[in-house]
Design a protein around this nucleic acid. Structure first.
Lengths: 344, 344
DNA sequence: ACCGGGTCAGAGAGCGCTCTCACGCAGCGC
DNA sequence: GCGCTGCGTGAGAGCGCTCTCTGACCCGGT
């Protein structure tokens, strides 16, 4: 093998021997538990340094039943996970929070149903202490899989069913959408269309609901389902223009779709915001600030939501010191905020 | 705990008992090794099903010293990993290849030097069988870290030093850059500028070399260092226009920077490709096809390169059946290809 | 001087698995 | 019929660690 150092890696036994203590004491020192007198502890620490000892995680896991690892499962069959900065930011937040708690992030990408079985095996295999599930669609089997595997779970985005035992983190999609439309109304717009996300996801449905809240009785023809991609946004915009050439505003359910829609407007020579105003959703800075014109949108703190998911999960996995049982953990819905730029 | 099923999970022992065989035989069946007679094997398999047995990975790792997991370490302190689709595609390729070989992908994001220590600990902890390193900068300490940890490694992109023992996968940056510039020359362009990537990375340096190959003696003022972000590309473009208003072409070292540069050109009313031609690098479809105008660029098969990295690493980790020692594994440099769209 | 209580260290039993080794039982040649 | 080979199975020894349980020791109180 190419890695000799893996072969003769010092064990706790070796450290103990060198420090002249028992394995138990060495273990105590390594794990920072108190009750070891200073001089002894010092000897052990020196031995650890000299030998370059690093605990064998597998052995430790075998007895403690903890992995200090969390799986992030992305149920996005298509390429969206990576093209959409939304996930990126969320994962970043998760990563930071996990790192802060000395947990590892194991990324599981699924592309198609066949992968679900693999993910199920993995979760059941006890590799991880918990799982973060993303981007679920209608009656997704992933949560059931995780539950059967006995793995604590937190979901990104409100799932399609209600269940007190299911934890999730989401933003106030409906309220945010309402605010977006109100802003358009305040700007004097009257013929407002909506480019929705895929309606098998609650985020899309909730945003559509918010749109309807602010604009009851809207002609269904003014609502088109997109797919959260720029191309989808572009297609929807083109359709919309064909159906209803005199529309004066669009609320797109994501910045990414809005960017596609803006491109179509520009191509068709429609001025934004003079002829048509546009509001997006997400406030993905790298998109919203760089569209032409910069995009007015509904901000959600995506990275923070990622952190929250991780925090919630970690607490569910190991109830902190002091509290015995998880102290009634509950799902989190974060507020949104209108960010006005040039497009509306 | 919230997961009772984790608590009383059946062991191999239980399976063996139920099937009326020894633990050894049960293990043989579970691991698919031959030499167990059919009826016995069938009994074991039934027991596995009935009990819902899943092997305990920690116990297995403890004795086999294999994790079936690979770390992907991204040395990108800034937010680039997630905003740049380049990484995304690469990770996708890696993920696919690892999945095909039943390996897990453990993602380690580093943001700053402090994280290096954590990564070092993790690698040394024997959690993974190998590591894929990305986006290294000059004299990055990551490879040393991995080596000391005794973890087989493959690097994405040619590292800044030469070392027969270091495996990497990269594309022909220099050749690709040369081709880009030649295309511009063929189009009759004569005042060609270059927006380089950060010059502490070999990809940037190599592309710059290629640029110089095709255009020896270029005024250094026509070369500006960017940072592989759209903003950096925009800034560089602005500078370039100020310094040299009569330039007639730009070769940007990445599509992402090219997109930023194109925005600036549009803002300044410079027509592309009439006044200024633009060639990018990477062929990130979601960027290159959607710029205005669509971007002529140098294609590298990023996803495939990800696959190659994974394949190389897996082979290094466990030499396949047949060959004893790794059969002289070597680094891979893939060809590039000019993709002509509208911008040049 | 004796004893009870508290503190700190060590002994040792596993955690669940793999894998070597030994053993039993065919089938073969002589 | 005897040993020999060879295949299929079981016994058992660890892998490296944690953690409980026990015991040694020291202290103060009587």
């Amino acid at each position: 093998m190419s890695d000799p150092s893996l072969a003769h890696r010092p064990t706790l036994e070796a450290v103990a021997a060198r420090a002249g203590v028992s394995r138990a004491t060495a273990s105590r020192v390594v794990n920072g538990s108190d009750g070891v007198r200073a001089p002894l502890a010092e000897r052990v620490r020196r031995a650890v340094d000299e030998l370059g000892y690093v605990p064998n995680q597998a052995a430790r896991t075998l007895v403690t039943r903890r992995n200090d690892a969390i799986a992030v499962v992305v149920a996005e069959p298509e390429t969206r996970f990576f093209s959409d900065p939304f996930f990126a930011q969320q994962v970043r937040g998760i990563s930071k929070e996990l790192t802060a708690h000395d947990n590892q992030l194991v990324l599981l990408l699924t592309e198609g149903a066949a992968d679900y079985e693999r993910v199920g095996r993995y979760l059941a295999g006890g590799h991880v202490d918990g799982a973060l599930l993303f981007s679920l669609h209608d009656d997704d089997t992933l949560p059931g899989l995780a539950r059967r595997a006995g793995v604590p779970t937190v979901i990104g985005g409100r799932p399609g069913w209600s269940d007190a035992d299911t934890l999730y983190v989401d933003c106030d999609n409906r309220g945010g959408a309402r605010e977006a439309v109100r802003h358009l109304l305040d700007g004097g717009r009257r013929r407002i269309a909506h480019i929705a996300g895929p309606l098998d996801q609650t985020a899309s449905v909730d945003r559509l609901e918010g749109f309807r809240d602010a604009l009851p009785g809207t002609d269904p023809g003014m609502i088109i389902e997109g797919d959260f991609t720029p191309e989808g946004g572009a297609r929807a915009m083109a359709d919309l223009l064909d159906r209803c050439p005199d529309l004066d505003a669009v609320f797109a359910a994501s910045d990414v779709m809005a960017s596609g829609a803006l491109r179509v407007l520009r191509t068709r020579g429609v001025r934004v915001p003079e002829d048509v105003a546009m509001v997006g959703f997400d406030d993905i800075v790298s998109v919203a600030e760089w569209t032409d014109p910069p995009l007015t949108t509904i901000r959600q703190d995506i990275e923070e939501m990622g952190r929250m998911m991780a925090r919630l999960l970690l607490r569910r996995v190991s109830p902190g010191p002091g509290q015995q049982e998880s102290p009634a953990l509950s799902s989190i819905v974060t507020p949104t905020q209108l960010v006005v730029r040039a497009s509306a």
